[in-house]
Lab assay of single mutants.
Amino acid sequence: MASQGTKRSYEQMETDGERQNATEIRASVGKMIGGIGRFYIQMCTELKLSDYEGRLIQNSLTIERMVLSAFDERRNKYLEEHPSAGKDPKKTGGPIYRRVNGKWMRELILYDKEEIRRIWRQANNGDDATAGLTHMMIWHSNLNDATYQRTRALVRTGMDPRMCSLMQGSTLPRRSGAAGAAVKGVGTMVMELVRMIKRGINDRNFWRGENGRKTRIAYERMCNILKGKFQTAAQKAMMDQVRESRNPGNAEFEDLTFLARSALILRGSVAHKSCLPACVYGPAVASGYDFEREGYSLVGIDPFRLLQNSQVYSLIRPNENPAHKSQLVWMACHSAAFEDLRVLSFIKGTKVLPRGKLSTRGVQIASNENMETMESSTLELRSRYWAIRTRSGGNTNQQRASAGQISIQPTFSVQRNLPFDRTTIMAAFNGNTEGRTSDMRTEIIRMMESARPEDVSFQGRGVFELSDEKAASPIVPSFDMSNEGSYFFGDNAEEYDN
């Protein structure tokens, strides 16, 4: 783990906690998980779902989305002020799938948001429990990260689609708070800032007046979040320049895209947490497990152990491969979309394939898809080993990566060399080191050039047997250095459309 220093740990961010010791953190995270579980059980009762239907990941996603929508204050306010045809701002819903006479049927349900809020609060001892809501947002974000390569979004903001390893959390809503900021990748933060800068260039009043003052505060806050992700002084200094700019424009845009590229080699610290679907927490609570009393951590053995003992089902389209669908969801559960496939294969105990080789589309089923041909199958979400999630980018030494994705962002704290394609990355730096950030740029390029592919990161860190909950005997895996390590390699994943 990167030293926490003055930073709060993510469990504290996750639970809005002030400084807590490890036991208190485990208890408050457990409380959050228990609340999600209780809410899910109650919703299944309301909807009269069978046990099997309640364990269907598509039903879980609909129920999670309903509660997130019920608590989305800004959108609710907007919907009330701008009524649109056929949208009731006070209601929320989605597809629920039921097994009827041996076939899967889709039923569109509609609930009062007020009623959903009441059920959620009741499951969370009367609190709004925003930490639990954020947790579900991060699960949705991790699922998107594993399912889609955001080529269009990258290109629109002047970045290269091969930089997708920097895009963790790119679909997280803005209201996801400190826990959300911690899991956002460098590219995601750059993209958010670039969008602001572009608006400022096109709209003279963007930075002016009372609204402009708020915009400015948001801009500086985002700059500080991004600065905190960088691990070298030169990158941090460049972020200070971007933040202090009187009138952010093209120079800042250039600096930010430069920094994003540099992060492929001088990786930023991005938190990883295993956020599971509500249909995993519900049955665990129903079986009598007391998360608050037992304590829970999002970055240790607990999620692995929970998945070892969970039964989750998914709808499967006619030509999809259930094992591939399982891999997709497994990666999402562990926030591992940008991790090295060699490491993932070792931990999972079966070969993890790149996205383009998977015969599976996303987990969600569109409303126009034919239910007649839908089957369902068990998702295999178990693992051979477990490993500690990392909050750091690993040290800054790398190795060759593949054509589709030119770097990785480690999820697990496991000893290995970190793949990246130096030639491709360095070719993108057209040696432009003039301007006010020239000395920093020169320094950053120097550090990137001296990074050695064969150097090892996370020295001495290994994986653990599932029986080793105290992480007492690390097993340090050895990897084939020459092997392909990137998930979005030469990829044809669908595009994420909101």
Score class of each variant (00 low, 15 high):
residue 4 Q to Y: 05
residue 5 G to T: 09
residue 5 G to Q: 04
residue 7 K to W: 03
residue 8 R to H: 00
residue 10 Y to W: 05
residue 14 E to Q: 07
residue 22 A to V: 14
residue 23 T to E: 00
residue 24 E to Q: 11
residue 29 V to P: 12
residue 31 K to M: 15
residue 32 M to E: 03
residue 36 I to Q: 05
residue 37 G to Q: 07
residue 41 I to T: 14
residue 43 M to I: 13
residue 43 M to S: 04
residue 45 T to Y: 08
residue 52 Y to P: 00
residue 55 R to G: 04
residue 59 N to A: 03
residue 60 S to I: 10
residue 63 I to K: 11
residue 68 L to C: 12
residue 69 S to L: 10
residue 69 S to F: 10
residue 69 S to C: 09
residue 72 D to R: 01
residue 72 D to A: 14
residue 76 N to T: 12
residue 79 L to A: 06
residue 82 H to L: 10
residue 82 H to T: 15
residue 87 K to W: 06
residue 90 K to F: 07
residue 92 T to W: 08
residue 93 G to F: 04
residue 97 Y to G: 00
residue 98 R to F: 09
residue 102 G to Q: 01
residue 108 L to G: 13
residue 110 L to D: 08
residue 111 Y to L: 15
residue 117 R to P: 00
residue 121 R to A: 13
residue 133 L to W: 01
residue 135 H to Q: 15
residue 138 I to W: 06
residue 141 S to L: 01
residue 141 S to A: 15
residue 142 N to A: 06
residue 153 A to D: 10
residue 154 L to M: 08
residue 155 V to C: 08
residue 159 M to G: 02
residue 159 M to V: 11
residue 161 P to W: 02
residue 162 R to Q: 07
residue 165 S to R: 01
residue 166 L to K: 05
residue 173 P to H: 11
residue 174 R to V: 01
residue 179 A to K: 06
residue 179 A to E: 09
residue 182 A to H: 12
residue 183 V to N: 02
residue 184 K to S: 01
residue 187 G to V: 07
residue 189 M to D: 05
residue 190 V to I: 11
residue 193 L to S: 11
residue 202 N to F: 11
residue 204 R to P: 07
residue 204 R to D: 01
residue 206 F to P: 03
residue 207 W to I: 11
residue 208 R to L: 04
residue 210 E to G: 08
residue 212 G to T: 13
residue 213 R to M: 14
residue 217 I to F: 11
residue 218 A to T: 14
residue 226 L to G: 01
residue 226 L to W: 09
residue 226 L to C: 10
residue 227 K to A: 12
residue 231 Q to T: 06
residue 232 T to L: 03
residue 234 A to S: 15
residue 245 S to E: 02
residue 246 R to S: 08
residue 248 P to L: 09
residue 250 N to W: 15
residue 255 D to R: 04
residue 262 S to T: 11
residue 264 L to V: 02
residue 264 L to M: 15
residue 265 I to A: 11
residue 272 H to R: 05
residue 274 S to A: 08
residue 275 C to A: 10
residue 277 P to R: 10
residue 278 A to I: 12
residue 279 C to W: 06
residue 280 V to E: 07
residue 280 V to F: 12
residue 282 G to E: 06
residue 285 V to F: 00
residue 285 V to K: 04
residue 290 D to R: 07
residue 292 E to K: 15
residue 302 D to F: 05
residue 307 L to N: 04
residue 311 Q to S: 12
residue 313 Y to W: 12
residue 318 P to Q: 12
residue 318 P to M: 05
residue 325 K to W: 08
residue 327 Q to I: 08
residue 332 A to L: 03
residue 334 H to P: 05
residue 337 A to H: 05
residue 340 D to M: 06
residue 342 R to P: 01
residue 345 S to F: 05
residue 348 K to D: 01
residue 349 G to C: 09
residue 350 T to Q: 00
residue 350 T to M: 14
residue 366 A to I: 02
residue 367 S to M: 06
residue 367 S to Q: 12
residue 368 N to G: 01
residue 372 E to A: 13
residue 375 E to R: 03
residue 379 L to H: 10
residue 383 S to N: 13
residue 383 S to T: 14
residue 384 R to Y: 11
residue 384 R to S: 06
residue 388 I to S: 11
residue 399 Q to D: 11
residue 401 A to C: 09
residue 402 S to P: 02
residue 402 S to G: 08
residue 403 A to G: 10
residue 403 A to R: 02
residue 407 S to H: 03
residue 408 I to Q: 03
residue 411 T to K: 13
residue 412 F to R: 00
residue 416 R to W: 04
residue 420 F to E: 00
residue 420 F to W: 10
residue 421 D to K: 08
residue 422 R to Q: 11
residue 423 T to I: 10
residue 426 M to K: 10
residue 429 F to T: 04
residue 430 N to C: 15
residue 435 G to L: 07
residue 435 G to V: 10
residue 448 M to E: 12
residue 453 P to L: 13
residue 456 V to Y: 07
residue 457 S to H: 09
residue 460 G to H: 07
residue 463 V to N: 07
residue 465 E to P: 01
residue 465 E to D: 11
residue 470 K to M: 13
residue 476 V to Q: 01
residue 483 N to Y: 14
residue 485 G to F: 01
residue 488 F to Y: 12
residue 492 N to S: 15
residue 496 Y to S: 05
residue 498 N to R: 15
